[in-house]
Design a protein around this nucleic acid. Structure first.
Lengths: 130, 130
DNA sequence: GTGTGACTTTACGTTTACGTAAAGGGAAGC
DNA sequence: GCTTCCCTTTACGTAAACGTAAAGTCACAC
């Protein structure tokens, strides 16, 4: 049998509220099975949630994330669609590479900032005390 | 003389609306000089705006960005403050490194996705036509 | 049978980050 | 002097992403 989870299990595991998970479902990002009224999540849903939260951490809107999930889901279709799919992947990749550049820029700025701080601290401990 | 800019100049250059720039000022992220009622921005403000927009692209809230800008601005203070400053820099760096890991994870997933697509395309062009 | 706890739906509230409209001021061009 | 921009302030509107409260259901413990 495939492993399943309740909404509370997922919420605890990913440190979000059940409300959040239901909201993602209402937005069409998740579509769990049901046992009676209760939602039953399978590993596939877990992975999707993980991807959603990762997208959020990277600053994507739920709309963008949905588009990406749809991409990942639908590698079926005619040749033309496949090609436009690849095109979208490329655009997305370009965006991510830009983000990485942003991050690296900040990281290097932080590096020099910390250096300056250290220099200040050193000069103080070497010279007069506070 | 130091170079200065009007709000429209900055707006055009960074592709945001003047409203956005005024909003950042209201939130305490910018504090331009004034000539009469009009706002006059100097290179320092330009840099700050650039940092703000970079922060946004990385998914930080304006509140978080303000905290970071304040950090970068206030390397004055007693030794204890300097040390806690360095500590905050480290936390921020850890966060950025996490983000980079996220990005790399997505990039590698995209890579394999594109490979699968290519394989599909190849098998089609090799086999029967649509 | 009566809690207790986890789930459900419905619905209104809230924060963030601006958009947009209204009403006006000041300089520049014709 | 009138128009045309670009700027100003004030203020209400809005989309996104949930929070939170209300009221009910179901299974299980005691």
């Amino acid at each position: 049998m495939e492993e399943t989870y309740g909404i509370g299990d997922l919420a605890r595991h990913f440190d979000v509220t059940p409300r959040t998970i239901r909201f993602y479902e209402a937005e069409g990002l998740l579509s769990p099975r049901r046992r009676g009224r209760n939602r039953v999540y399978r590993p596939r849903d877990r992975v999707r949630l993980k991807l959603i939260l990762r997208g959020k951490r990277l600053g994507f809107s739920l709309g963008e994330i949905r588009a990406l999930l749809d991409l990942y889901d639908a590698p079926e279709g005619r040749t033309g669609q496949l090609e436009s799919f690849i095109e979208k992947i490329r655009e997305h990749r370009a965006l991510l590479l830009e983000q990485r550049k942003d991050i690296d820029a900040v990281l290097s700025e932080m590096k020099s900032l910390e250096r300056q701080c250290r220099a200040l601290l050193d000069s103080r401990s070497a010279g007069a005390t506070d």
